[in-house]
Each structure stands twice: as structure tokens, then as C-alpha cells.
Design a protein around this nucleic acid. Structure first.
Lengths: 198, 198
DNA sequence: CAGAGAGGTTAGCGCTCGTTAACCTGAAGG
DNA sequence: CCTTCAGGTTAACGAGCGCTAACCTCTCTG
């Protein structure tokens, strides 16, 4: 996968700034003029790139859910012949990378879902559900004693743990990205282990 | 502590419904008319009880933070001569009770803080910080190997885990309140233990 | 029984917001 | 060189919002 070297398109600029603003002050708390100003154009100019404010949020949320799911599927495919433990570690690692590198998106992801149009919301929910089920299967391979509902609750709880990074203070106050990632990883494994030891 | 048997006051009705609506659709997503309708009066009638919509949110958030902190302090005071482990268990239990019984408030608590006036926000932040520090101290007694920043990160992460209950589906789909509480408790302890075993 | 105050009502003001309309401009292309 | 069109601009509209004003009506209480 080649890393992009070309400049971001205007659409991408807008999405990035919109994500940041939505995460900071909520979907309804941000005006289109502000989003425009953040990329150097003014309010209505956005409508050359998006059908409306709703469309920006929809594209963001669908994008996030899709990325998470795609990444997890790839990790699962890459892990042929390795232990379930290693697969789970890979999933955790991927989620942590996402949570640490795209904090605004992680915030939006479970905060503004209800502001979507019905069809978009259904799509996002479906992607999220697939992502969860994928985790549930792996977790149950590692901890066969877990019933499916219990495993699902455990997965949701660990997501809560991993997604807590936005509350960990501004990026500077952390003990360093690597250490934080490692701490989160250990805690996630510890939480699963405790759930599995009924 | 006598459990209340008298009917809730109008103010309390309003706060409860406002909390539910704010949690469902966000502070900016709910109109005063809706809040009024939820308690059987119409929009402007609310202003006989609150100075404005902001005041409702402020009272809710200050109330939550204060309740959490007060409860934790009481638990700490009650635990004289017991092991640090037992104190930590008591804190976890209290937080879980809150998360399971007052889900709308838990959602508001870390989602709408930025909509407050400066002075109110500072107050809430201060109460939250005290609550966190209280946990940090207890956690470090149980796991002396943890540095303070690491312990604080761990505490925030466990809050994320415990506060994930809103994502666990509607109250009916859970494996039962008792089982859920027990699962969350075990996972929280497991996460701390993993954090402490550097 | 008069008067006051608590707790409602409806009408409407002023502001903000998302969106559209109409217009402008610079670069590409036959 | 004229046309086209992508990508901007400003003006303005219509809806919805929080909130106030003005008024009404019970229920106490001196």
C-alpha cells in the first residue's frame, strides 16, 4: 500500500476540518461558515463539494466504519495459521492505532451516529455490527468458555476502553505514543482474560 | 439514607426528561418545546423553573460529577482498615451502579461538557479531576509499581470501559443487570491488573 | 373574601442557521 | 479568441431556535 505523497484534495481538506470541528463542538454546534473558514473558503462554497452538511457527516461516519472493518478483515486474512491470540493482538493493535491517530473520528464514531439520515445510519450500523461480530468470533476462539452475548458485551467494553484516548488529556501530556499504545494493549488483553475466566 | 417515597418535584421531572433527551439527540438537537412536552407543559413554561436551557444542562452535569465524587468519598471513608483491594472494588462497584442505573447521565457526562458556560465547566472539570485523583491514589496503593501518569491513564481507560454500558444494547438485550455488573467488575479488575504488571 | 403568588398559557421577537440564487473569475481547450 | 466550466463570491430567504411579554387561573392565607 503506497503512502500518498500528492496533496490532499479540497474535499479531503474539508472532511478533515469538519471532523475536527464536529468532534470539538458537536454536529449541531458547528456552522457551515466555520467549516468553510477552516479551509479558507466561505460557507456556501462548500456546496460545490458536498450536497450539504449532513452529507459531510455521513461520508465521515461511513468512511470510519468502513476503514475499521476493512482493516480488521485484512488482518484476519493475513493471519493464516497463527494462533487466535496473535489474531486478537493484531485486532487490538489496529484499533489502538486508529484511536490514537484519528481521535476526532473516534469521537464522532460513537457520538454523532444519531444525526444521520435513516439510510446512512443503517449502513453505518451494519458496518459496525460486522466489525463487532468479527471481534466476537476471535475472542471466543481465544476464550471458548465465553457465551456469545457475554463475548459481545466484553468486546463493546474493550472498545470503550480503547476509545477512551480522547479523555487522556492533550497529546502532549501522555507518556508517549508508544507507551500509551502498549498500556492500552495490555489492559485490553487483561480485560478479556478476566472476562474469559468465569 | 432514607429512600424517597414522595413524588418527584416538577424540577426533578424536567431534569430527568431533559437528561434523557440530551443524551438521545444532543444538547443542540433538543428544543425547549420538546423538553416541555415530555413533562406535559409547553415550552416557555420551563422558564418558571429554570433560567434557561443552559441552566438545565449545567445543573445536570454539576449534579452528576458531584454525586460521583461524594459517593466515592463516602466509600473511602467507610473503608477504614480494609485492604486497598477492597476499596478499589468498592469504587468500581459504585461507578458500575451509576453507569447502569443512570445511563443518560453517563452519556451526558463526557459528551456535552463543552456546551457549558466557562464557570460551570471549570466547576465540573474540578469535580471530575478530584474523582479521578481519588481513584489514582487507590489504584497506586494496590499496584505500587505504577507511576502516577500511567495510573491516571489506566483510570481513564477503565472509566471508558465502565461507561461503555450505553453501547451494550437496549436494557433488555443484556444478560441481566447482575451478570453485566459482575462482568464489568471483573474486566475492570483485569485491566488494572494488566496495567500494574509492567 | 380580597389579594398575592406559583405555575401555567399563547403570541411573537430577534437571531442564527442551512441552503439557494445570481454573479464573478481564471484556466483549459478547440 | 471565444467558450466552458470548476470553484469561488455575496445577498438573501425561510425555517427553527431560545427566550420574553402579556395574560390567565388556580390555591393558599391574612
Amino acid at each position: 500500500m503506497a503512502t500518498r505523497t500528492d496533496a490532499p484534495t479540497r474535499r479531503e481538506q474539508i472532511l478533515k476540518e469538519a471532523a475536527r470541528l464536529f468532534a470539538e463542538r458537536g454536529f449541531h454546534g458547528v456552522g457551515v461558515d466555520e467549516i468553510g473558514a477552516a479551509v479558507g473558503i466561505s460557507g456556501p462554497g462548500l456546496y460545490r463539494h458536498f450536497a450539504g452538511k449532513d452529507a459531510m457527516l455521513a461520508e465521515l461516519l461511513v468512511g470510519i466504519s468502513g476503514q475499521l472493518l476493512t482493516g480488521a478483515k485484512r488482518r484476519l486474512a493475513d493471519a493464516d495459521g497463527v494462533t487466535p491470540e496473535a489474531v486478537l493482538d493484531s485486532l487490538i493493535e489496529g484499533h489502538i492505532d486508529f484511536a490514537l491517530d484519528d481521535r476526532p473520528l473516534i469521537i464522532l464514531h460513537d457520538r454523532e451516529l444519531d444525526r444521520l439520515r435513516d439510510s446512512d445510519r443503517k449502513l453505518v450500523r451494519q458496518l459496525q455490527r460486522q466489525y463487532v461480530e468479527l471481534w466476537v468470533e476471535v475472542v471466543r476462539e481465544v476464550y471458548p468458555g465465553l457465551t456469545e452475548p457475554t463475548a459481545r458485551s466484553a468486546v463493546h467494553s474493550v472498545f470503550g476502553l480503547l476509545n477512551s484516548t480522547p479523555h487522556l488529556g492533550r497529546p502532549g501530556s501522555l507518556p508517549g505514543r508508544g507507551a500509551t499504545a502498549e498500556l492500552l494493549h495490555r489492559m485490553a488483553r487483561g480485560a478479556f482474560a478476566a472476562a474469559g475466566a468465569e
